[in-house]
């Protein structure tokens, strides 16, 4: 029951967040120079053409009225129509969200799969060769920009080895999975060094604590001590680190999407900004906000599952 209440309480906080974001985004966009009608009409733009298009898009109304219309529609779950595509923003955003979510989830899963064993190994062989290697090599990954790493992965694993498609998202679940591995790996390799470092540090801390010594004294096997007793406790801080990084990723997968032609939400956002397609920008910003809140919620839930003290608080 407490668990459900906890989730509900967090979901309620979404409302003021979304309201604040909608206000901020709407008025910030209005302050940006550049007129959507001018962009749509291109070089043939004439004053009459701009006026006609303003009327059609509802841009001739005063700002407050445009905002009221925008929020009014929002209550009905309607994000409005895109200026350039002339179709519903909600369907565009939801559609483009699919590859982005795949990318973030794959990235996070791969990052965990790579970091946890390495961090555990590293922490249990503290200051040994393995430890030093594991601490150093992933740092190189941190130094490699995603676009370069992505292209290298494409060249090696897809063009040379032919193991994965070079770009696109494919059709059908099977092809989606095949297509998402390389971009997911690109995202993961940027997360891995941070995760390894934080998990290793807390593992070392935990492995030195009294209850581990007690466990060992009771004669519990080394592996069981590490995985059953030390890891869940050490993981708490790393879950937060991962959560924060995923929340950050949500707005920044654009580069990876671009290299792998995934055309997710990052791509949609950038073109919309350039074309001054305000409804799309507003829609995506709101979706980002919701996603960040949800990721934070999931982080807290994992946290709560791992650490009973969080739930009770």
């Amino acid at each position: 029951m407490k668990y459900v209440l906890f989730i509900l309480r967090r979901l309620v906080t979404l409302i003021p967040v979304l309201f604040g974001i909608s206000l901020l985004v709407f008025f910030l966009l209005q302050m940006v120079p550049g007129d959507p009608a001018v962009t749509l009409l291109g070089a043939h733009v004439t004053d009459a053409g701009v006026a006609a298009l303003h009327k059609q898009l509802g841009l001739d109304h005063p700002l407050w009225r445009q905002y009221v219309t925008f929020v009014g529609r929002l209550f009905h779950g309607n994000l409005g129509d895109s200026y350039q595509y002339k179709s519903s923003v909600s369907s565009l955003v939801l559609h483009n969200l699919v590859p982005t979510i795949w990318l973030i989830v794959t990235g996070a899963v791969l990052a965990v799969l790579i970091s946890v064993p390495l961090a555990v190994w590293s922490a249990s062989r503290r200051n040994g060769i393995a430890d030093n290697t594991i601490r150093t090599i992933p740092l190189i990954g941190l130094g490699m920009p995603a676009f370069w790493l992505g292209i290298m992965l494409v060249l090696l694993l897809s063009l040379k080895a032919g193991a994965f498609p070079a770009s696109g998202f494919g059709t059908g679940i099977g092809n989606h999975i095949k297509s998402i591995i390389l971009p997911g790996l690109t995202v993961a390799l940027a997360l891995v060094p941070i995760l390894i470092r934080s998990l290793r540090a807390s593992m070392i801390h935990v492995l030195q604590s009294d209850y581990i010594t007690t466990a060992r004294a009771k004669g519990i096997s080394g592996a069981r001590v590490v995985f059953r007793h030390a890891l869940p406790n050490a993981a708490i801080s790393s879950v937060t680190v991962l959560g924060v990084n995923i929340a950050y990723l949500i707005g920044s997968t654009l580069v990876v999407e671009k290299v792998f032609a995934l055309n997710g939400i990052g791509y949609l956002m950038i073109t919309a900004i350039f074309n001054r397609d305000f409804p799309i920008v507003q829609g995506i910003t709101l979706v980002f906000a919701v996603m960040v809140v949800i990721v934070n919620l999931l982080t807290d839930m994992t946290h709560a599952a791992l650490d009973p003290r969080v739930r009770l608080a």
Binding site: F147, I151, V154, L155, S167, K258, A261, N263
Partner: peptide, 12 residues
């Protein structure tokens, strides 16, 4: 197919 990245189109 929309492929914003120049290198990716080249690779394709």
């Amino acid at each position: 197919q929309t492929v914003p990245d120049d290198n990716t189109r080249n690779v394709m």
